[in-house]
Design a protein around this nucleic acid. Structure first.
Lengths: 359, 359
DNA sequence: TTGAAAGCGCTAACAA
DNA sequence: TTGTTAGCGCTTTCAA
């Protein structure tokens, strides 16, 4: 591994940043009142121009616009929100912005929000229920019109006042706990069951499951899918074939290595999510004999591995889009009852899941 | 490719969502006034309790807290912001939330914001200058305290009133255009030059460059690095060895295939960013003879490809962290002059860049 | 320790 | 077509 560059270089550019501390409230922002004074019109006329309302002569509009440009006026949305009661923004609480699974989901939520003229405010809970609550309530304090939540916790009664106050709320990826709310999920159970059945169909009977922490809904559902597939095939699952825990590479590595060792070693592995899968691939790649692998969640470049990675793919963008659309339908007032929407998963075969058992 | 699931299933849960449209401004949110009335205290006392100020007896505080809980009161930050002038939020304008390069960057900005008690509002410009401006100004209208921008455009004079008003601003990944502002970059030129020099050191002379649109600063700098490395080695670059354009797979595929064909075919390729790299890998994988490849930006699983992918890696989290920290130092008032900070890149050798020329 | 009054910048309602 | 007034929910100031 070569190293290029020796550390960060700092190059002063110019020294003309105004050194003074702003004295006025918002730095020195002009208000509509200032614009009105400069243009020699009333406050409301400025408001009309800024908001593109009708009933202003061209000449007046021109004068106002000139004052706006000259002063660099920008409407203060805080004041506007205070008056109007709608912020035209929605909040998204997810687990980790940096996880490739959530990128497309966020982007999809953003696109829907944008189509409705709303901004997106988002934050990561880092799988911590307290942080999830803190974030969600901070968003509510800013009076977001709606909330899309990928929950970390399992008790969302803290949102009851918000729901009562009309904050549109949709849960994604995992259901809400102890409140009645819309939820959009992937078919985690069915996807895992089919993925494991696929391995069984290719001759495996000793199949390991390496998953996330069982308190996470998706992890539990996928484990259930695994157990069901095994049971349906009449295979008795041994305790040593299952490992659940944090997705930390060290834990996953150890668990995977153990499953692949000893006389009872499994011949195939089903991994419970993308974080687990990448580590499992590394472990398998180091071993002499091939091990079949099916992973939950698709991964970039999965088709270029040797062998290609067989996965149960969920459509994270569709999860986000569906949730956000539902959110805006709540805001329209066109929805009545909370629903549970389940999106299908897709088994994509690329080679790793079709390897026969090593005998 | 197997298909699991036949479409989305909708399961009604219960039908007790309140059907009425909220009549009150914010649904039916209680205000401090309501809390004060219920607790039998003055408005300011409620404010003191909500904000944890001193000068309230335990007994009074208890009564107020009781009223808060009973009513489900949540402070309205819009009103607070209007009075205080600071929103405790910062904006992030990036290119595409779904791009794996920006995930860690966003997350890093978020972590710094969180450490400073601020929320993050973000949006994607989709590489469209108008959309960048629209987004940045919308964020300013919400009076974010600061702005981190990955610019799509090259003229940021529209931000002058904002800068004057004291909105802290830091550009990342690409410099600001026509205004004087802080900017945090990777060493795109040096990284590309070293990456290409690496190929030259392994015996290549006919090296192709497939990059992004040249109007994007990073793309231009990387091209410059390529040209410099070639020049330094005394190699005359032919026009057909360079292709710049959108990162769309179709365009990249065609460009790569053309470079690899004919009597003048290159023996190695340097790709200008992660989007380009993934497509180039696919094209190369389809070909009979090996082609050396070095890509700008690291990619997940790059180590597991055959051969492993040699890359010039930038630390996107460090870019975000550095920018955000600088932003908050602007807000502290501890900074004077705008600077240009350049972070080093790192050449990571994994095999694809060490392949000798096919002869 | 507590509270009354003013006002942040805007929009809604109404008047001219 | 234009302007005036009140008030959104909070914090600041100042007085009790």
């Amino acid at each position: 591994m070569d190293e290029t560059g020796q550390g960060q270089r700092i190059v002063p550019e110019t020294a003309r940043r105004s050194a003074g501390v702003p004295t006025h409230r918002y730095g020195n922002r002009p208000t509509m009142k200032d614009v009105a004074a400069r243009a020699g019109v009333g406050l409301k006329t400025v408001s009309r121009v800024v908001n593109g309302e009708s009933g202003v002569t061209q000449e007046t509009e021109r004068r106002v616009q000139e004052a706006i440009d000259a002063l660099g006026f920008r409407r203060n949305d805080s004041a506007r929100v205070l008056r109007k009661g709608r912020t035209a923004s929605i909040g998204l609480v997810l687990e980790d912005l940096a996880d490739p699974f959530y990128g497309p989901l966020s982007r999809a939520v953003e696109e829907v929000a944008r189509a409705h003229g709303a901004l997106l405010i988002n934050g990561s809970s880092a799988e911590d229920p307290d942080r999830e609550q803190e974030l969600a309530l901070a968003l509510c304090a800013r009076r977001v019109d709606g909330l899309v939540i990928i929950p970390a916790g399992d008790d969302h009664r803290y949102l009851e006042p918000e729901l009562r106050a009309g904050v549109a709320t949709v849960f994604v990826d995992r259901p809400a706990g102890r409140i009645d709310a819309d939820v959009v999920l992937s078919d985690n159970f069915g996807g895992a069951r089919d993925g494991v059945a696929h391995l069984i169909a290719h001759g495996h009977r000793r199949i390991g499951f390496v998953g996330d922490m069982p308190r996470i809904h998706t992890a539990a559902e996928r484990l259930r899918g695994y157990r069901t597939a095994m049971e349906d095939a009449g295979i008795t699952v041994e305790g040593s074939w299952m490992s659940l825990g944090v997705t930390d590479p060290t834990r996953v590595r150890r668990a995977t290595e153990e499953m692949l060792s000893g006389p009872d070693a499994v011949t195939a592995i089903f991994t419970g999510n993308n974080r687990v899968t990448v580590t499992a691939i590394r472990v398998i790649a180091e071993r002499a004999r091939p091990v079949a692998l099916v992973g939950f969640d698709d991964i970039e470049l999965a088709d270029l591995l040797q062998p290609g990675l067989t996965v149960v793919a969920q459509d994270s963008a569709a999860l986000g889009r569906t949730a956000a659309e539902r959110l805006f339908r709540q805001l329209d007032g066109t929805l009545l009852a909370p629903e549970r929407i389940e999106l299908p998963t897709r088994l994509i075969t690329r080679g790793s899941g079709e390897l026969p058992p090593a005998s």
